[in-house]
Design a protein around this nucleic acid. Structure first.
Lengths: 227, 227
DNA sequence: ACCTGAACACCGTTCAAGT
DNA sequence: ACCTGAACACCGTTCAAGT
């Protein structure tokens, strides 16, 4: 009966996003969730919005997904499938940077996605594939296994943290941001060093800082490694 | 049941008859918010819960706080006041570790608090005080200013990331966790290196890994510095 | 087994109205 | 200027009921 309402917008919207009528399935749910996350407005996903997009009620999703936290884990791993793991050839250092950049780019594709990477530890097949490749690269770099085992945690954590910070819109370079304002307002009397270093603190693009930080990490890891 | 009294027990009058309810104020709101965050059940804060605890409606809070994101920033800085900034004496390396440990401990006092440290960049006076001290320590270590300026970002990001991961309850040491399960189930054929390194990946306490990671960072930073 | 409507117990935010 | 009740537009999750 409620389907006959000619003004129902949901039918039109759902046609827009997915032209063929979607059968309800775990995969369709995860895909729609990821679609909402990567929407241009930096959107967030919700079970109710997913249900609406799939032309059903929120309760129906529970046939395919235990709860929100399971959905988050599924969505995260689904997103990680886009990480290019064996794109680059060449020396290990280049491959490491390429992999981590790809990883970071995927996580930064949505503020919520980066956030999720902290809330739910990624343990799906794609996360494993990334870990495997990182171990490969570090082995080629001559890093011993115990060091490498702990190092990959630092590297992924680093990328996730950068993505989370960047996604939330804190470009430290922008002179109009709240960060810049706070630092510029920091009185030299109380915070002399912050004041003196304020130029350097806010200098550099995201790219430059990423490369610099990765270099710090690699140097530290290599210096700990028994090669 | 809003039984708590954020103020000192100088007044012994019964709360039951609620003769004098605490006056609404920005500070009372922030304090109650932080109290909810650090509740034992790993609780989350909400404007409505804060309002209820302060015996008023949610709309009343908007006289003191612009919106949720401002409240988050206020709460974060309020929490950072507990970070011990000049507790330790002695060599810079010890002071650095003490400061970062105190920082991490504060952030890890609530899952939501650690999460917040990513959502909202801390720019309050307490965050500045921490940055100032870090610059001091790195200067003593002989690190040049440009290097130090970028290094303190890495150090705080590192602590925040560790706290966020730890707070969400992912002890990589516990053999019953989802992480351990996934890694142990990783087929040796597909993920040979992960499989081979599974013992090392999950070894170590949080303390040990924190110390190890900090050492990696310090080595990397020192190796970049022009001293 | 899958799907549903309806309810439950929450959210942040706005707004006209009171004091 | 401060505070309020009520509403608006959302949440995740459960449950009895349908197919």
């Amino acid at each position: 009966m409620p389907q006959r309402d000619p003004f129902r917008a949901s039918e039109v919207e759902s046609r827009r996003t997915r032209p063929a009528k979607p059968p309800l399935s775990r995969d369709a749910i995860v895909e729609e969730a990821l679609h909402q996350l990567t929407a241009e407005d930096g959107g967030a996903m919700s079970l109710r919005k997913i249900a609406k997009a799939l032309d059903t009620g929120p309760a129906s999703l529970y046939a395919y997904v235990d709860d929100m936290s399971e959905l988050r884990a599924l969505v995260l791993d689904h997103a990680l499938a886009a990480v290019r793991v064996d794109d680059a050839e060449g020396p290990w250092r280049d491959r490491l940077e390429a992999l981590l950049r790809s990883y970071g780019k995927v996580l930064a594709s949505s503020p919520s996605l980066a956030q999720m990477a902290f809330q739910t530890t990624a343990v799906g097949p794609n996360a494993l594939r990334i870990a495997e490749t990182l171990l490969e690269i570090l082995a080629e770099a001559g890093v011993d296994r115990p060091t490498a085992a702990w190092a990959i945690d630092m590297l992924t954590m680093f990328v996730t943290a950068v993505a989370a910070e960047h996604a939330h819109g804190a470009d430290p370079g922008a002179p109009d941001g709240a960060v810049a304002q706070a630092i510029n307002r920091a009185p030299a009397s109380e915070y002399p060093r912050v004041h003196a270093a304020r130029e350097e603190i806010m200098s550099g693009t995201g790219e430059e800082r990423f490369a610099w930080s990765l270099d710090v990490l690699v140097r530290g890891i290599l210096s700990r490694a028994q090669s």
